[in-house]
């Protein structure tokens, strides 16, 4: 969107690079990113990796098991995006030579023990089914060095009256039937804090990143598409009604602001047990 029509007309980027979301900058603002080796667990489209690089990370491992996401992160945050404002903001260091996109399962990360000084899980755990929580927490703890920091940003369970709950429920029904696991689980902050406490982490602080959470038309259609995708692998008499319901709900919801996104920051002791 060009708000500067009478000025230089340079508001628009080329669309290939990322502006670091405020959720990311707010979550990292009080964390010692500068000079650290960082790991973004569940890299998505690379927003947090971009934020870590902008905050002066020494090296960022963007770990994702999704081939498409890995490519997107490389395109947006890696060499193709180097030389943009973010690289300049990071003290003139090119973004590319500090970023390594790692295609791997978070239950088995190809990094040495104690290799990382700061781990982020920004919007990760809501797509992690309960059965996988422990193995991921154990693995992230293994690669984290003594004294390492961990930032877990996620969503509280939605309030009862949130309309998007029904859409997420249909998405979960379709993916449960198709894959045996839910697509989405919204863990309260305290649940994830206790999970990591079991691996020796202590909570530094909790803050609210978004309140309310804006589920925009784009989010709602993306979730409906995910539900449709899962439903399409089911028997038609089961899948078709689920797909139709996802579409109906997406159209009915449109967009909605509901719920809270939180950030919990944790720390490992300087020396392991």
């Amino acid at each position: 969107m060009d708000l500067d029509a009478d000025a230089d007309g340079d508001e628009e980027g080329d669309g290939s690079t990322t502006d670091v979301p405020r959720t990311v900058t707010a979550a990292l603002a009080d964390r010692p990113v500068e000079g650290r080796v960082c790991l973004e667990a569940g890299a998505g489209i690379g927003n947090t990796s971009a934020g870590l690089l902008a905050a002066g990370a020494d090296r960022v491992y963007a770990v994702t098991n999704d081939r498409g996401h890995a490519e997107t992160v490389r395109d947006r945050v890696g060499p193709a995006a180097a030389g943009d404002a973010r690289a300049n903001a990071a003290g003139g260091r090119a973004a590319d030579d500090r970023l390594a996109v790692v295609e791997a399962d978070l239950r088995s990360v190809p990094l040495d023990a104690d290799a990382v000084g700061l781990v982020t899980a920004h919007g990760l755990f809501n797509v992690v089914p309960p059965a996988s929580l422990d193995r991921i927490a154990a693995e992230l703890t293994r690669v984290a060095a003594p004294g390492a920091h961990l930032v877990v940003d996620d969503y509280d369970p939605l309030p009862d009256d949130a309309a998007v709950r029904d859409l997420f429920a249909v998405e979960n029904a379709a993916t449960e039937l198709a894959t045996g696991s839910p697509a989405l689980t919204f863990y309260p902050a305290a649940v994830l804090a206790r999970l990591f406490a079991g691996y020796g982490w202590t909570v530094d602080r909790e803050r609210t990143l978004l309140d309310p959470v804006p589920w925009t038309g784009r989010h709602v259609s993306a979730h409906a598409a995910k539900a449709r995708g899962a439903a399409s692998s089911l028997r038609p008499e089961l899948g078709d009604p689920l797909a139709a319901e996802a579409d109906r709900l997406a159209a009915a919801v449109g967009e909605e602001s509901a719920g809270r996104m939180y950030s919990v920051a944790l720390r490992l002791p300087e020396e392991h047990g």
């Binding site: 405020r22 959720t23 990143l209 978004l210 989010h219 993306a222 602001s257």
Partner: peptide, 20 residues
């Protein structure tokens, strides 16, 4: 931040996202 995020997603040139 909620407002910034909402407008950013409305306007975003990048692929559809599930998260914030």
């Amino acid at each position: 931040r909620s407002l910034v995020e909402r407008l950013r997603h409305d306007d975003s040139p990048v692929p559809e996202q599930l998260h914030h």
